[in-house]
Amino acid sequence: MSEQRSHGFSTRAIHAGYDPDPATGAVNVPIYASSTFAQDGVGGMRGGFEYARTGNPTRKPLEANLAAIEAGTFGRAFSSGMAATDCLLRSVLRPGDHLVIPNDAYGGTFRLIDKVFTQWGIEYTPAPISDVDAVREAMRPTTKLVWVETPTNPLLNIGDIAALADVAHTGGAKIVVDNTFASPYLQQPLALGADVALHSTTKYLGGHSDVVGGALVTNDEELDTRFAFLQNGAGAVPGPFDAYLTMRGIKTLALRMERHSDNAEKIVELLDGHPAVAQVIYPGHEAHPDHAVASKQMRRFGGMVSLRLAGGKQAALDFCARTEIFTLAESLGGVESLIEHPGAMTHASTAGSLLEVPEDLVRLSVGIEDAADLVADIEQALEA
């Protein structure tokens, strides 16, 4: 089942990577809580397992599943999205190299590149990822990587993956797409020319706000060999229970993404034209400048909605404080609805930089609760 790519998305999400245990018939992946594995003589590994940092029988099916749902060949699981990010950067870049990043990249990605990798002689240039010409102009002879988020976090800009892949490859660089916001159900970067799809599996893939993880998926065997070396050598791997929870979450990804998208669209209907809202930002909104590109490469537009408040920063803070169903918290992609102020929370690290986010911006992660309740909650918070 795990190797049959012709199956539909939900079939792969539920079955890829694991068949029922031949000994017990267990239909779910067992949690192998073992740090080491007995060998049949020196070097005689059973099933290829020797030490849990190197490989674990719960993690292995997850990695096969991740590859299958991204329509890739190789999948690697990590202890967090930032661990996956770090592995990718260290696998591709060397001192003196350059990369292009979105000018509204996730704060954690920006912080790692700006505060850590620049100390090792890596240079970067921010560029608007929705402007293919601007990305092309940001390229240098030393550019080895183009980093793409689409939709971006938190301004929900859209990059044309196929066009950006052409720019990167023409310049001799690799292109990675952080596919966290879209999920593999809504968008398939590898099929559009990306070299790597990256995820914080903490978000939509896990889907229940109960596990932290990350993933890298590629069709490039040489790249995967580098990922595997650092995954084992640096050791930022998920534990077996984390792998089990992530795989459990993936099984319902398609259903959840449809409900997230349904609910987000209803929230956007309320926000659009509301006197307290200066701007509503959603790729599915026809007024979004990148709506045509999003429509071309996404199945639907997901559960992330951003808005700017007409009353400025204080209005944004007050709005965040007044919601009742939307919980004030960082992260996203869980079944429950969350609200946050990026400038003071997830993107505080960008303050004073070229990537600083507007102070009147609020980000919503629209959950799968009853839509009428979510709309009523947002409405009362805006009008209080």
Results as ranks from 00 to 15, higher is better:
residue 154 P to L: 13
residue 350 T to P: 04
residue 198 L to Q: 14
residue 265 E to M: 06
residue 189 P to G: 01
residue 155 L to S: 08
residue 203 K to P: 00
residue 80 S to M: 06
residue 275 P to V: 05
residue 36 T to F: 10
residue 283 P to Y: 00
residue 298 M to N: 08
residue 168 A to L: 10
residue 310 A to D: 08
residue 360 D to I: 14
residue 97 D to Q: 07
residue 49 F to S: 10
residue 197 A to Y: 01
residue 360 D to M: 14
residue 24 T to G: 10
residue 291 H to E: 11
residue 188 Q to S: 06
residue 267 I to A: 04
residue 41 G to R: 12
residue 225 T to V: 12
residue 346 T to Q: 11
residue 194 A to Y: 07
residue 262 D to N: 05
residue 364 L to T: 14
residue 322 R to I: 04
residue 207 G to M: 12
residue 203 K to T: 03
residue 356 E to A: 12
residue 268 V to M: 15
residue 104 D to Q: 05
residue 258 E to H: 13
residue 188 Q to K: 03
residue 108 G to P: 13
residue 215 A to W: 03
residue 202 T to D: 03
residue 249 G to C: 09
residue 222 E to T: 15
residue 204 Y to F: 09
residue 10 S to I: 09
residue 241 F to E: 01
residue 249 G to M: 04
residue 383 E to K: 08
residue 120 W to C: 08
residue 305 V to A: 00
residue 191 A to G: 13
residue 329 A to Q: 13
residue 247 M to G: 04
residue 128 P to H: 09
residue 8 G to H: 15
residue 137 E to V: 04
residue 273 G to S: 07
residue 304 M to A: 10
residue 255 L to D: 14
residue 214 G to F: 15
residue 246 T to W: 13
residue 259 R to E: 11
residue 282 Y to C: 09
residue 214 G to T: 11
residue 378 I to L: 05
residue 336 E to S: 14
residue 182 A to L: 08
residue 249 G to H: 09
residue 210 D to G: 13
residue 7 H to V: 10
residue 225 T to E: 07
residue 170 T to E: 08
residue 243 A to S: 01
residue 298 M to L: 04
residue 247 M to Y: 06
residue 197 A to H: 01
residue 369 E to I: 03
residue 131 D to M: 09
residue 137 E to D: 15
residue 122 I to G: 02
residue 258 E to K: 15
residue 370 D to Q: 12
residue 315 A to D: 04
residue 296 K to F: 12
residue 330 E to L: 10
residue 112 L to I: 11
residue 349 S to N: 08
residue 165 A to N: 05
residue 132 V to C: 04
residue 383 E to R: 07
residue 220 D to S: 08
residue 359 E to G: 09
residue 170 T to F: 07
residue 31 I to C: 06
residue 41 G to W: 15
residue 56 N to C: 06
residue 172 G to I: 03
residue 75 G to D: 00
residue 334 G to Q: 02
residue 376 A to F: 13
residue 291 H to W: 10
residue 253 L to S: 10
residue 189 P to I: 06
residue 333 G to L: 02
residue 3 E to H: 14
residue 308 R to T: 04
residue 253 L to F: 12
residue 283 P to K: 03
residue 202 T to K: 07
residue 301 F to S: 08
residue 313 K to V: 06
